[in-house]
Design a protein around this nucleic acid. Structure first.
Length: 461
RNA sequence: GGUCGGAUGGCCGAGAGGCGAGGCUCAGGACUGCAAAUCCUGCUACACGGGUUCAAAUCCCGUUCCGACCUCCA
């Protein structure tokens, strides 16, 4: 028997049984990237964590609609455009591609829909009109449109703050705002800025409006799960709630937030330079290994990054991968994909991946013992359980998403290595260990490891 | 000032009143031409001070330290 899926909800800070709004279906909105710089591993952790959630929901039988937006217009993009001397839309496209590449390298499934902010201006205008009609927003005449936070019946419910306790923004411009905490839904166009026409004058979206508009467009007035990084709780998600609820929409039922990747105990900041960009890390480890590392911590726990820990995780993963490949060889066919009840219970407990990993270790012992005993019947089950768990974590080594290289190259390589191994085994058979070790050392030098087992010699790159 | 987290063995990292999570490292052993891989055994920890309880890493009170958010943030 497995327990029901329970998830932590930031809104009430409790873990509760998940009840979809529509039986059998789940709608998820994840705040994706503001495409103004290449992704670092903190950004991609968010993608991985929510991809695991999505895979688990799908595996649990839900029909999942997963929306991850691209915010392709904002202050930083405009600044970058000036700095890089290219159009703002070229900046957005460049970094959107960088994010897409990173997601693909880590086998983060493409979202059901991936809406861009600039493609939903008309929905934003409609939302602003609605908010003005309902008395929760105002256009002071300078081209801006603000949300009137004092008009809300509730505000700051996610972060549990009081409006009057907030430190007032130092640069709050009160010439147009009714309250310094009112936030811009829409920003009047400045000379040189991109702009779209509206009833209040030409301008561009404020930061929060796009998510309310797009979540509504693709998931309706109410949906199940809204996700993002911890730092989006305030102000971004508070303001999304303010916009959506004052429009009369139910909005998100559950709020989920992933924790950060930290360095030296601190949140990763963009000033760290390039070394923690996904692109750079992928020069050291494979995508599947980086994913294993990022996914192995609980999504609500800070993950303290170090290259040592990354390397340890990679080694650990390769051990599991090696087991599965050996198992596949012994079974003489494909390893099955099966979800063990123990793993299901761990995942159902607010995605307790670390407990799931402990289960994988247990299954590995059983499987390795079966391999040692050459008991083919006993190998299949633990191997299938492990592969099942890995498939949820997005780290199935047999997943086509990870297979690179052409088949011709692979065949040639296989043939060459097999040839060397045959030579070495011939040397061993005549007890010429000097010759056999020379072959092994030569292979090691070019990055091919050799292991002798009772069932023959195995090799790995 | 307000709000929210965290501190667990040499290291990483779960757990949230009662049977040693798990991994890595290290030591010993089995296997082995050697190596590797694998398995077995060993290493009994919860920031500090009180309290509640038959029983506290876990609950309560207090303290110290670390971090995050308060309108750029995954």
């Amino acid at each position: 028997m497995t327990i029901d899926l329970q998830l932590y909800n930031t809104a009430d800070r409790k873990v509760s049984v998940f009840k979809p709004l529509t039986p059998g279906k789940v709608g998820i909105y994840l705040c994706g990237a503001t495409v103004q710089a290449p992704p670092h591993i903190g950004h991609i952790r968010s993608g991985v964590n929510f991809d695991i959630l999505r895979r688990w929901l799908s595996a649990s039988g839900y029909d999942v609609t997963f929306i991850r937006n691209v915010t392709d217009i904002d202050d930083k993009i405009l600044h970058k455009a000036v700095h890089e001397e290219i159009p703002w839309w070229a900046v957005a496209m460049k970094y959107e591609r960088a994010f897409s590449d990173a997601y693909a390298a880590l086998n983060v499934l493409p979202p059901t829909y991936e809406p861009r902010a600039t493609g939903h201006i008309s929905q934003m205008i409609e939302l602003m009109q609605l908010l003005i009609e309902r008395g929760h927003a105002y256009a002071p005449g300078n081209g801006d449109v603000y949300l009137d936070v004092r008009s809300l019946k509730s505000y700051l419910t996610l972060s549990n703050q009081k409006l009057d306790d907030l430190q007032p923004a130092e640069d709050a411009d009160l010439t147009h705002k009714r309250d310094p905490r009112d936030f811009a839904l829409w920003k009047a166009a400045k000379p040189g800025d991109p702009s779209w026409p509206t009833p209040w004058g030409p301008g561009r979206p404020g930061w929060h409006l796009e998510c309310s508009a797009m979540a509504h467009a693709y998931l309706g007035e109410a949906f199940d799960i809204h996700g993002g990084g911890l730092d989006l709780i305030f102000p971004h998600h508070e303001n999304e709630i303010a916009q959506s609820e004052s429009a009369g929409w139910g909005f998100a039922n559950i709020w989920m937030h992933n924790a950060w990747v930290t360095t030296s105990g601190e949140k990763m900041s963009k000033s760290l330079g390039n070394s923690l960009q996904v692109h750079e890390i992928l020069k050291k480890v494979r995508g599947i290994e980086l994913r294993w590392y990022l996914g192995s911590a609980h999504y609500r726990s800070m993950l303290e990054f170090s290259f040592e820990a990354l390397e340890e995780a990679s080694v650990n993963f390769r051990r599991i991968e090696a087991f599965l490949k050996r198992a596949a060889g012994l079974i003489g066919g494909e390893v099955g994909i099966e979800i063990a009840p123990e793993f299901a219970n761990a995942m159902n407990d607010d995605l307790a991946v670390p407990q799931g990993l402990a289960f994988i270790s247990e299954a590995m012992k059983l499987g390795n013992n079966a391999i040692t005993a050459n008991d083919k019947n006993e190998i299949a089950k633990p191997a299938a359980y492990i592969r099942g768990a890995l498939s949820i974590l997005g780290c199935d080594p047999f997943d086509a998403a990870y297979s690179g290289g052409s088949t011709t190259d692979k065949d040639v390589l296989d043939g060459l290595v097999e040839l060397a191994i045959e030579q070495r085994n011939a040397a061993r058979a005549r007890k010429d260990f000097a010759a056999s070790d020379l072959i092994r050392d030569s292979l090691t030098k070019i990055g091919i490891t050799i292991e002798d087992t009772p069932n023959g010699t195995r090799w790995n790159i």
